[in-house]
Design a protein around this nucleic acid. Sequence first.
DNA 1: CACCTTATACTCATAATCAGCATAAGAACA
DNA 2: TGTTCTTATGCTGATTATGAGTATAAGGTG
Lengths: 341, 341
Amino acid sequence: MPKPADKAAGLAPRPRAVPREIERGAALAIRLCAVILAATTHEPRILTVRFGGEEAVEALPSGPLEVEHRTLELGLRAWVERQTSQSLGYVEQLYTFGDRDRLEGDGRPARALTVAYLALVREARPSGSAEATWQNWYRYFPWEDWRDGEPAVLAAVLRGLAGGARAAPGDAERRLREERLGLAFAVGAGSWNEELVLERYELLYEAGLITERRRDLPAAGEVVHGPAFGRAMAADHRRILATAVGRLRGKIKYRPVVFELMPPAFTLLQLQRTVEALSGVRLHKQNFRRLVEQQGLVEETGELSLDTGGRPARLVRFRREVLLERPAPGVRLRAGRRVPA
Amino acid sequence: MPKPADKAAGLAPRPRAVPREIERGAALAIRLCAVILAATTHEPRILTVRFGGEEAVEALPSGPLEVEHRTLELGLRAWVERQTSQSLGYVEQLYTFGDRDRLEGDGRPARALTVAYLALVREARPSGSAEATWQNWYRYFPWEDWRDGEPAVLAAVLRGLAGGARAAPGDAERRLREERLGLAFAVGAGSWNEELVLERYELLYEAGLITERRRDLPAAGEVVHGPAFGRAMAADHRRILATAVGRLRGKIKYRPVVFELMPPAFTLLQLQRTVEALSGVRLHKQNFRRLVEQQGLVEETGELSLDTGGRPARLVRFRREVLLERPAPGVRLRAGRRVPA
DNA sequence: CACCTTATACTCATAATCAGCATAAGAACA
DNA sequence: TGTTCTTATGCTGATTATGAGTATAAGGTG
């Protein structure tokens, strides 16, 4: 229905795209946060900073959005460069976190809106203003590394989770939690789904098995004792990291993003080891090469690598043209591709 | 390296998780924005609002984040409910837009941080405070509907784009643009990839073939004349919509999200028509049913639908258990599954 | 040289996919 | 009361992808 009264003021040269009513609202600072991943010598790595010296906990490179930043991504790049001297190549937006009940560093609850990004880089020699170091990301999620069979912590994790599920308030809530548990950890039927990194982290968090939960929400009722799993990070950075790892594990299957982590020339086994490091599972060697080659993901360099320990391997490089040919080029690794270590 | 001077103040009971230095930064208002999709009678629909009466352009439901909102998603739900009386079921975060050079409604450049969400709903009877109406989303992207063969506008769109590509500054820039064009519109080799909605929209936008570009960036050099394609929306809402449609088109393939749009019981053809409406392509009927049935996505209700026009069809319902069984249940539609209309 | 290593080629059974044809079961209409 | 339209559903045969092997090649080391 037309509302002619609206035109009374008649000042704007063209109709307002956004009404005045939605322009008010709480103003707050925005934080930009980077999960910077690499893979060197078969280990998945993440770039962390420590602002407060040795005793401080590890954090992701991050900083506030400033007026000079033309785009969010440029602001992020500036902060990372400043804090770690690492320049970023591939960058994609990950998620925006903004729950009000998150705790600030000094303990008071506050809204902090964090726009998190995922970055993939090749090299790994940080030396910024903050103390920046590369860490194997399975330090934070030891239950996620299945490359050498079932991880050692898993049994203890599952014991802790089972206790938490039993203690759930209400019958429906208990059944729901058990279902989530079965899905995320493949207890009962189903097999391990390597993409559910965030789901698993959140289950542990809710069950009080994560240090951050005890640290940031001490007043949250049922304080759980017993072990807490994985190394803690600052604020909710471990949750952000879990989001990033899950996203990456999904993405390598349908986009050729692994190559952002590889050197210009590499062997097929190096590529396989990298994929395995990221996904946390072992792959069948012959089928992996067939997949990579018949998809046209790589091309010959003509050179050989002699430091294989056995027969020399062909060195290949990423074939950029595949982006134009295939709709979803990636390193698919279906469920149940596990191979004994 | 430890910095003992840091502990001088000694007020915080535990080490600060986030250093003080990153707490300053520009404060600004956050906008929450919802792309609400439905599918009724074989048409893909989106819920739009008009704040300024008839002559105003269509907009997505949106409003500022307020202090009362405990989470971003709850804030979004509150705004949508207020503006459209539509309560949301399935909601997922889409993307956070925050370029500084976006224009506000009154013409001055400003930073507006918009957290956009994708929502899928079943019913479609809006009556909120703003004038809310359902629209077929192909009004905004007429080149995206390939259900009845090549869309009529496509030839004109490609003519316009080809002109823009020729006019690109520099040789490398021109080649890059041509490559993007070939990828997004399947000119030359390759076939139509229905997920590249955003890529196509941005190509048109950059080529000046989109009303918003001429409206919001009048000073941006080469003003293009000639046709502008698709219906315009407020601010950058059409870009947000393109992001949402692309995301949904990808997601239906590996997650059972279509069922969020279906009534409790439906026929297999209704399901197929919905998938086709979303993806914009026709599917092979027999293979579609086999896929859906052998994946265990649906189960019998025992009832029949008589209003098919032909032989009555079985009514089925979504089988929730599939979420526990399959790692990636979804309605896969590989490339080249096209069928003449 | 035997024997370790890793690389690479090839095979084979099974499962999924693509594109059809054939038949079933209702409504509309002569 | 057929005839003809519609849509639903069952089934087949060719092709391709996947999973899990075996066999052989080609470098090292003792």
